[in-house]
Amino acid sequence: MSSTPTATATQKEGRSEYGVALLLLVLGGWAIVDGLSLTDTASRGPVSAKTMPIVVGVLLVAMAVLLVIDLARGGRGEAEGGEDVDLSHGSDWRTIGLLVGAFVANALLIERVGWPISGAILFFGTTFALGARHYVRMALISILLSVGSWYLFFLGLDIKLPVGLLKGIL
C-alpha cells in the first residue's frame, strides 16, 4: 500500500482493481438471488438451505463496498512476488492468451483425439507461449510426456485417459 504514484501505468492498474469489487458484487448478488430462490421445506431450525448462500452473498457484497472505499482512499492490493516473478513490468497478456489457448485446445480435443495427442499439443503450446523456441526438442519432450503419462496412468494407476485416434496403436 506504499505505492509511489509516478507512472501512469500504476494509476491504470489502480483503476482496474475496481473490477475486483465488481466481481465480488456480482458473485455476492448471484449467491443472494440463488439463495432466495430456494424453497426449503425439509430442514428444521433457523438454518435452512437458503442461509449459507445468503450469508456468503452478503459478506461478498459488503466486501465489494468496503473494497471500493479502500481503493478510493488510495489502498492497493499487493501483487504477489516469487522466485521467477519480476513485477517491474506489467502483465504480459500475449503470453497469458497463448497459454489459455493451448489449455482450451486440450479441453476441446482430449475426448476427440485422445490425451497422447491433445496433451502433446498442450505442452508444445505452453512451452511456445512461455518463450521456448527449440522446436525439435519441444516436440520430442511433448510427445514423450504425453505418451509416457498415458502409459503411467493406464498401467501404473489403472486410470484410462482417452486414447482417441491412437486406439490400437498404444
Binding site: V85, L87, D92, L99
Partner: peptide
C-alpha cells in the same frame, strides 16, 4: 499463469 505473465 501468474508467473507466466511476469516471467523474469
Amino acid at each position: 499463469l501468474w508467473v507466466a505473465a511476469h516471467l523474469r
